[in-house]
Design a protein around this nucleic acid. Sequence first.
DNA 1: CAAGAATCTCGCACTCAGTGTAAGATGCAG
DNA 2: CTGCATCTTACACTGAGTGCGAGATTCTTG
Lengths: 199, 199
Amino acid sequence: MTNGIDPAPQEGTRARKRRETLARITEAGITLFLEKGYDATTLDDIAARAGISRRNFFYYFKSKDEILLSLQSGMGEMIVDALRQQPVDQPPLEAVRDAVLKVCAIFPTDEMIAIDQLMRTNPVVQARKQASMVEHEATLYAALREKWPAPDQAIRLRMVAMMAMGAIRLATDSLHHEGGKRAFTDILAGNFAALRDTA
Amino acid sequence: MTNGIDPAPQEGTRARKRRETLARITEAGITLFLEKGYDATTLDDIAARAGISRRNFFYYFKSKDEILLSLQSGMGEMIVDALRQQPVDQPPLEAVRDAVLKVCAIFPTDEMIAIDQLMRTNPVVQARKQASMVEHEATLYAALREKWPAPDQAIRLRMVAMMAMGAIRLATDSLHHEGGKRAFTDILAGNFAALRDTA
DNA sequence: CAAGAATCTCGCACTCAGTGTAAGATGCAG
DNA sequence: CTGCATCTTACACTGAGTGCGAGATTCTTG
């Protein structure tokens, strides 16, 4: 659940203010979404609470749903970073599995459920979430190709990226339907095991 | 690319008119989208061309993007039907592969490219398309469970459904980037082969 | 430090998708 | 024929997102 708001070595006034405003908008959005629901929360509400004009909201986010989407926008890069640190002598699918498990262990399960719940209330948001998974899939595929550049591996690596992101997606789905009985990483590990046994 | 407009044994005046109006709206939409682009086409344009009021459009479609989405809404059911006719002694992934290949052979490649191109022009439409793939995935999973009801197979079958729909999605992606060099079914078959070799 | 560029902020006016309502027209079943 | 469900329309409204232009703030460079 990382947005692009965290660190900043040597940042000037401008960068600091931007970061702060971004954080204020995000917090205002999440709070109001949880309070009155996604659809019932207008951009006027969010802007007022964040202390900015409605017009200026669009200088920070392209659309209302980006507030929620930004919460998981960092995941793609995090997985890629973790993947780069895996040994090369592993089979690709196992390397990705280990990387994904490391990254997902960071996110608190209850927070994931809350955000997921929120996204399910609006079909467009839900759809964009799936689309962002597809983007992460593409990012992951690029990283896999860097690590295993042999051309005859390309199709296989594309499938690996697809399966890995699919495993994550189905794990969040199970998490939602189980309501938190099993830990996220356990479900995820089970999915990867099923993948290996299947194909 | 089947919408719910085709057959109708014993249909009354009402059902016939509804079918005709639905077809007129769809045709008006597609024509205008291809002519002026998706975003530049307003619901007023579509309604005028289809000979209905703007308000009445929403009696046939929930939203503008549903015109495009409806073009592939039948695919899930078609795959499921094809799957039911596969022999049971096959491994699940192979049964799904054969079913998918049969269904996809029906759709003309050039039409698929045209619709796909259209959808790529608008991020929300694109996102909803991915979301509809996820729905088809769920439908497929349900059908797989019917055919192989053993409880210990459940997770595996969920992965199979995910991989199959993923293979289709990545095939349309390749189709788009290659611009029609290879036939769709060839790409798809290649993807399934890569799946089997990988996991 | 001064001046100009780049970034940020706002208000206003506008387009368009989508919804609520209420009233009229048309097809259907008893 | 008559009541009921379906279809159709016009009107008014909310809210997301964009274009524009003008003012303020921060950064950069001479």
